[in-house]
Design a protein around this nucleic acid. Sequence first.
DNA 1: TATGGCCTGTGG
DNA 2: CCACAGGCCATA
Length: 259
Amino acid sequence: MPELPEVDAAARQLDAAIRGRVLRAVSLLHPAIRRVDEARLSSLVGQRVVKAARVAKWQEVTFERGDVLVVHFRMTGDWAVSATSAGPPHARAHFAFSGRCHVWLVDPRALARLGVRLAGEADTSRAGPDAMDPALDATQLRARFRGRRAAIKQVLLDQQVLAGVGNIYASEALWHARIHPAAPAGQLSAARVARLLTGIRWAMDLAFAEQGRHQYGTATARFRVYDREGLPCERCGSAIARTVQGQRSTYWCRRCQRA
DNA sequence: TATGGCCTGTGG
DNA sequence: CCACAGGCCATA
């Protein structure tokens, strides 16, 4: 599920379901999810939802007193919304709202995280600018890469540098920009960073466009390089390569993407 | 900067 | 059985 476009869709779905409703009850259904401070969670019960929105790869549900429920899907989280109180498989948390609205956090791996930021508390996440923020330009992005000798692929995954790019779209964006995934981030020319930002927006826009349409495109149909090891590059026809960087798979074209 | 851990599931 | 999974954090 969760890179920026998917989290964005989830947050919109959540907002449509719960905005204006009152939280009636919360229950946690898996020990790993119980690491959240339950007293804080309970303090949300009885409050009305002002809005739900995406912030980087987080979702924030703002309540009337200014308290905020913070949710991160990690690898496999998602929402399930229904009018009945029967939970779906892998339901890890249950939120009951007024008007017979039930929301489940569904997460097979149970890696998702819940948190509560009470009114007046500072936001401690030091996330960088949002990848889809139109105000972000290539000059700013290049400034954020400056001094980083690590591979651009890994720097793209650093949410403090740029928020919202994950493992799939990092590969996709680098392919679009024709940049070698191991290139040192701080050495990229202005022109290359400009291409990279274009590539990031291109990959994200494609994913946004996919949301409304057939949810079930296969990976090979949806992506240009991700999960396409050995298949032909759609630009030059040579076989897509897979390498590992920082314990994560990187997919790229040896011919199109030069150092 | 690398490594392991968190969790469960799927596919080779 | 093993490798791997769209994320992130703790630790040395």
